Amino acid sequence: MIRVVLGLGSNAPYGALEPVELLSGACRELKKILAAPVFSSLYETKAMYYENQQNFYNMAVTGFVDDSASPFELLDEIHRIEEQFGRNRSKEIRFGPRSLDIDIEEFGSLVLNVPDLILPHPRMNERAFVLIPVLEILKKSADCNKKEAIFSSLKKLPEQGVVQCSKTVQEKFLSLTC
């Protein structure tokens, strides 16, 4: 089995669904394609790059795919989930508001650089909104070197406004996800 790490974010509603509900729906879908998924807490994060938008809700997920799975198959599944929850890449602003964004941060130890996919994710180590939830889910991992590398990257970053969501928001998320 290949361990994958995904980063999820949402800051725009889709239909009657708010960002926390969209992330919950995405997690329910990810449970169908990942073995032994582990979900981080939710974090509220100031927008980066394109700042004239609502704060994001972010989280990370780790789980496993079959050894025969390709990162492109996973990417296709992720795009299907994003579209299911309202993402339309042709109509969005780069780094702008979106109903759902799912990034493959890591696909095992694969290093890949092709037009449609770069692994590990090229901006992972500059984003506290990815590193903090990933560090949280890796606490249960025995991979001390990985945790140390993430912690080291995180220490180098300026404050980015990443705050763990309140207990009320976490409980709402969990009640919708299970």
Results as ranks from 00 to 15, higher is better:
Val114Lys: 14
Arg28Ser: 07
Ala47Ile: 09
Leu110Asp: 02
Tyr49Cys: 09
Pro13Leu: 11
Glu29Leu: 15
Leu174Gly: 01
Ile104Asp: 02
Ser41Lys: 07
Gly7Glu: 05
Arg87Val: 07
Arg123Ala: 13
Glu21Ile: 09
Pro37Ile: 02
Pro97Val: 13
Lys146Gly: 06
Glu136Cys: 08
Asn113Thr: 03
Lys46Gln: 13
Ser40Val: 09
Ser109Val: 10
Val65Tyr: 08
Val4Leu: 12
Glu92Thr: 06
Arg87Pro: 01
Gly9Met: 11
Glu73Ile: 07
Asp103Pro: 05
Arg94Asp: 12
Ser68Tyr: 11
Leu154Asn: 06
Ser99Lys: 03
Gln53Asp: 02
Met48Lys: 09
Val4Glu: 12
Leu176Pro: 03
Glu136Phe: 04
Ile102Tyr: 00
Val162Arg: 15
Pro133His: 11
Ser175Pro: 00
Tyr14Gly: 02
Gln84Trp: 03
Gln164Cys: 12
Asn125Glu: 07
Ser153Gln: 10
Leu75Ile: 02
His79Ser: 06
Pro19Gly: 06
Ser99Ala: 15
Phe39Asp: 04
Asn88Met: 05
Gly108Lys: 08
Phe95Lys: 11
Leu100Met: 09
Thr168His: 10
Met48Pro: 07
Glu73Lys: 14
Ser152Gln: 15
Pro120Phe: 00
Thr177Gly: 02
Val134Phe: 09
Glu92His: 02
His79Ile: 01
Met48Leu: 15
Leu74Gln: 02
Tyr57Lys: 06
Asp116Arg: 02
Thr62His: 08
Gln160Asn: 10
Ile2Ala: 11
Lys46Phe: 04
Ser41Ile: 07
Ala35Ser: 14
Thr177His: 02
Ile81Leu: 10
Leu6Lys: 01
Glu106Ser: 05
Glu126Cys: 01
Glu92Gly: 07
Ser109Met: 11
Ile104Val: 10
His121Ile: 00
Ile104Cys: 05
Thr62Arg: 12
Gly161Tyr: 06
Phe72Ser: 03
Gln170Cys: 08
Lys140Phe: 14
Asp66Met: 13
Leu117Gln: 03
Phe56Ala: 06
Val111Ser: 04
Ile137Asp: 05
Lys31Pro: 00
Ser68Ala: 15
Leu17Cys: 01
Glu21Cys: 03
Tyr43Asn: 12
Met48Phe: 10
Arg80Gln: 14
Thr168Ala: 14
Pro115Glu: 09
Ile78Lys: 02
Tyr14Asp: 09
Ile2Tyr: 13
Ser68Val: 13
Arg123Glu: 15
Lys146Asn: 08
Ser109Pro: 00
Leu30Asn: 10
Arg94Leu: 05
Glu126Ser: 13
Thr45Tyr: 06
Tyr50Gly: 01
Arg98Glu: 00
Val4Ile: 14
Asp101Phe: 11
Ser153Glu: 06
Arg80Cys: 13
Arg123Asp: 13
Phe56Arg: 07
Lys156Thr: 14
Met1Arg: 10
Gly7Tyr: 07
Glu105Val: 13
Ser152Arg: 14
Arg3Asn: 14
Val163Glu: 15
Ala35Leu: 12
Ile102Ala: 05
Ser175Arg: 11
His79Phe: 01
Ser166Ile: 04
Val163Pro: 01
Glu105Ser: 06
Glu136Gly: 11
Arg87Lys: 06
Glu21Tyr: 10
Pro133Asp: 14
Leu157Ala: 08
Ile2Gln: 13
Pro37Lys: 11
Leu30Arg: 06
Pro97Leu: 05
Leu17Asp: 11
Pro122Glu: 07
Ala47Gly: 05
Val65Thr: 13
Leu157Cys: 10
Gly7His: 05
Leu157Pro: 02
Gly7Met: 04
Ser99Met: 11
Leu34Asp: 01
